[in-house]
Design a protein around this nucleic acid. Structure first.
Lengths: 225, 225
DNA sequence: AGGGCGGGGCTTGTATACGATTAGCGGTCA
DNA sequence: TGACCGCTAATCGTATACAAGCCCCGCCCT
């Protein structure tokens, strides 16, 4: 009786395993370079090796895991250079997402974005800090969904989780600053101003990059910023 | 003696199966919406179901396959809208790739691009038409590699194959026109002109979009073009 | 003492087996 | 005649089994 309708909504073990391993990587519970031994992961999660293997392949395609045939899988290593490279990609992708969101916005879409911001505000006020990172990702993802480009969304989902990974690794918390920028982006989208929406999204990611660079203590790229 | 060095260069069945299924999808041998039955694919390729399953998950993450739990996997359907959406993503991503390639170019990198163009020219002259599509993809991918952004490359690889899929489905051949644009892009990159490289890459994708729209016989989007 | 060599354990790659669920079909009853 | 019900075949989800390769350690030889 629990699942009387569409059977397609069933969550398979593989899906849960994938989400769980990814969560552990993004949160840092699984350290960079750490070996992912199929047997142990399977035992740890109480499943057999098969779902674990399928998960590892997907996570490898997403860039969270590195697989070397006959040697094994490890959590990917994220050098400072690679982390910074991500911001370039984000500016391009999220700029496009914001532009399309402004173009294709609907009242429901704008409302949806506001609701995520509202939830985030509550979470901040109640001190649910670890939830804030997830809500941050949710907001960016919601922008992508409002943009209504399915392939863009397919790419954005792992990209944003990777971004979250970068921040969890560097322990760089951007604080309330970030949410003001979100709000500003939300307004531009709701107003349907494509140029402004893109500009604000790009500026937002650029600010995140500066925050990241400060956190890792190297200002080599923009010494006169 | 064939494999005396690094074992990591070993190609597993799963890799070959993934490449083969992807190739059949991109080439159209596997039609959109066609069911991918694990048993049959396994028998067809002479392997067991396990490598096939892992392949299907990866292809789903790349957007070539749609998986519904307990129902099965099918080749993804590519509506005209989704196909066109891809061009937006490509303009953003390939524009960035071209810009970064111009910024980080090296003599070897520029030479590499020229070599791909040379090979393509030969292929065109010798009438190896089905190879031309692959070389087209190779060129775009090479631009990404010269850009030297690992995550960008991770995203570009399936994206470009998806683009190739779109063209193989619409039977839109762009012909020598495209290669002039490649050459022009290559020069801008070699010259290190970031703005020009990005502009030419974007223009190239925009031209491909027009070609696509013409091929599917709907000019609704840009009626006055 | 140092370097090659072989064996054992661990881990991955692949195959097979079994249970669970779905879709499709035919029969039955109103 | 049409709709509902149960059955069967097909297929997926998961677990288990076995084979093959890799790493590491100790031994032996020089």
């Amino acid at each position: 009786m629990t699942d009387l309708t569409l059977g397609g909504t069933h969550r398979t073990l593989r899906d849960e395993v994938t989400a769980e391993i990814r969560r552990r990587i993004v949160s840092g519970e699984l350290a960079q370079g750490e070996r992912l031994i199929e047997d142990r992961l399977a035992a740890l999660l109480g499943v057999s090796r098969n779902p674990v293997r399928e998960s590892i392949r997907v996570l490898a395609a997403e860039g969270f895991v590195q697989v070397i045939p006959r040697i094994g899988a490890t959590v990917a290593r994220l050098s400072a250079e690679e982390a910074e490279e991500l911001f370039d990609v984000r500016m391009a992708i999220e700029g496009l997402a914001a532009r399309l969101a402004a173009r294709k916005r609907t009242p429901q879409g704008a409302e949806r974005l506001r609701r995520v911001l509202e939830t985030a505000k509550e979470a901040v006020e109640n001190g649910r800090l670890e939830q804030v990172a997830d809500l941050n990702t949710s907001f960016h993802l919601a922008v992508g969904e409002v943009a209504g480009n399915s392939y863009l969304n397919l790419m954005m989902t792992p990209m944003l989780q990777r971004a979250q990974w970068v921040f969890s690794q560097t322990a760089a918390v951007r604080g309330p600053h970030s949410w003001t920028e979100h709000l500003s982006l939300c307004e531009a989208i709701a107003a349907g101003d494509e140029d402004e929406a893109q500009a604000r999204a790009v500026a937002h990611v650029a600010a995140a990059r500066r925050s990241f660079l400060t956190a890792i203590g190297r200002t080599t790229k923009h010494p006169n910023d």
